[in-house]
Amino acid sequence: MKIPYYPGCTLKTTAKPFEDTTKAVSEVLGIELLEMPRWNCCGTVYSLASDDLMHQLAPIRNLIRVQDMGYDRVTTLCSMCYNTLEQANQLVKGDPEKLEKMNSFMDQEKDYTGGVTVVHYLTLLKEMGFDSLPVKNPLKGLTVVPYYGCLLLRPEEISIDNPERPTIMAELLAALGATVVDHPYKLECCGSYHTVDYKEVVCEKTYHILSSARKRGAEAVVLSCPLCEFNLDFRQKDLEQELAPMPILYFSQLLAVSLGLFDALGFDQHYVDPEPLLKEKGLLR
């Protein structure tokens, strides 16, 4: 399968391991990711004001670039990119007048026709069937919790799963051989961009989410958002409360481990190094 791939800014910087492991995994799975030759930041947060089109230009411009590539689907990894691109997409698909205004403003681009669909990489994997994954190195003995956060699931119109009772990541992790436990904060916001202006809020959320996961027996938290990753991982160093270090992993990293792809795990880019845990479980070579 060939599909255009929209990276997003953070996948090129602090979330490089997310991209690298996904690329390695995709090669094995026969997903040919066509990285977009030209793209811009999607804006990361969808603008919610009814009269604001300026902040919709960034996501729509990217969809035009997908259209230029001659494809009608694009995949992305970052939850925030997925959310922003698809919300803006649905806005203009349902509002021809707004689309027309934006097309006429972006006069150096071809008009967007509304023909692109944004597909999160987890959805792509689900389409292929989690059971068909060629797992070589099952994650036996590893207990994890999936952490969905907000933007894969809300608002409902763009949700990749049931917004209140998602199972997609749990299904994937179970298919990889991990023991998956549920926890009450799996949908809870991590404090998001307040990591810039209200760091204490993010620390409090991080503590609650991770201590709850720990109580449920989790040894690692698995997610799909580079901002959640930063907050849950790097903010552990700013916590006032005692908390044993909790490794935070992108789902693609565990997928790579389970497929026996150990070259691009990028664990050195984490604050809490997941390597000792995975070694202890005999999952790394």
Partner: peptide
């Protein structure tokens, strides 16, 4: 502006992921 961009330290700016800065500046 609700936040002052110039008051964020260089050290923090070097550590924070782009996704945090873009979203914060868009909202604040």
């Amino acid at each position: 502006d609700h936040i002052r961009i110039s008051e964020i330290s260089k050290e923090e700016l070097r550590e924070l992921p782009p996704v945090a800065l873009v979203s914060n500046f868009r909202k604040c």
